[in-house]
């Protein structure tokens, strides 16, 4: 059992153990969708929502189906299936009942199905032996952490449009450098909270 309080997990997964900046998961959509602040905001909201829901769902699946039956090794493939199906369902639901929300975040949902940060959060939850509350807090923190990171990146990229980047560094290269620098600044939070 893991005894870290849920609140600590929440804050730690935003700052010290940021899923993107400490674990470098979800880089693909992080790089692809950070050209504009508005887009980054939409993706951040969608990732946070999906992460909270899927870690919770996967927790229930793991604790109440896989563990009792002794088939924990299936976690990987079943987590992916749950994530994909959930995202599909949410997309249809939102499209039907809240066109406004759909236009704000619906189009980002399909992107999230294949976002490894989402699967990563579910797998970390298993490895770190969280309970239900802790899992939900971790999912929420992980999502907000992704959101914060992609917003920072998008803000920088909007400004970067005016700067003269050396030719060999243009494109992904400079983005990776920037990500590294942001990750290092986040290491400044390391003394604040520690999480297993």
């Amino acid at each position: 059992m893991n005894t870290t309080p849920a609140l600590v997990i929440l804050i730690a997964s935003i700052l010290t153990n940021n899923i993107l900046l400490a674990s470098f998961l979800g880089m693909c959509s992080f790089l692809a969708c950070s050209t504009k602040l508005e887009t980054a905001f939409g993706l951040g909201v969608a990732v946070t929502f999906v992460m909270v829901c899927t870690t919770t769902l996967n927790y229930l699946l793991y604790q109440y189906v896989l563990v009792p039956l002794g088939i924990e090794f299936l976690a990987f493939i079943l987590f992916i299936a749950v994530i994909a199906a959930f995202v599909q369902f949410v997309e249809m639901f939102v499209e039907r009942y809240s066109p406004k929300l759909y236009y704000a975040l619906g189009i980002f949902l399909p992107l999230i199905t294949v976002n490894c940060a989402i699967l990563g959060a579910s797998l970390f939850m298993v490895i770190r032996q969280y309970n239900l509350i802790q899992s939900a807090a971790f999912g929420l923190g992980g999502g907000i952490g992704f959101w914060v990171a992609i917003m920072l990146m998008a803000g920088l990229r909007e400004k970067m449009g005016y700067s003269n980047v050396p030719v060999p560094l243009r494109g992904t290269a400079i983005l990776m450098l920037i990500t590294g620098v942001i990750a290092m600044t986040f290491m400044g939070f390391a003394g604040m909270i520690s999480m297993q």
Partner: peptide, 18 residues
Amino acid sequence: FLAIGVTTGLFLLLAAVL
């Protein structure tokens, strides 16, 4: 068999829900 059963079951359930 258990693994196959659970996987198939879950996939069918998800497909049905969708």
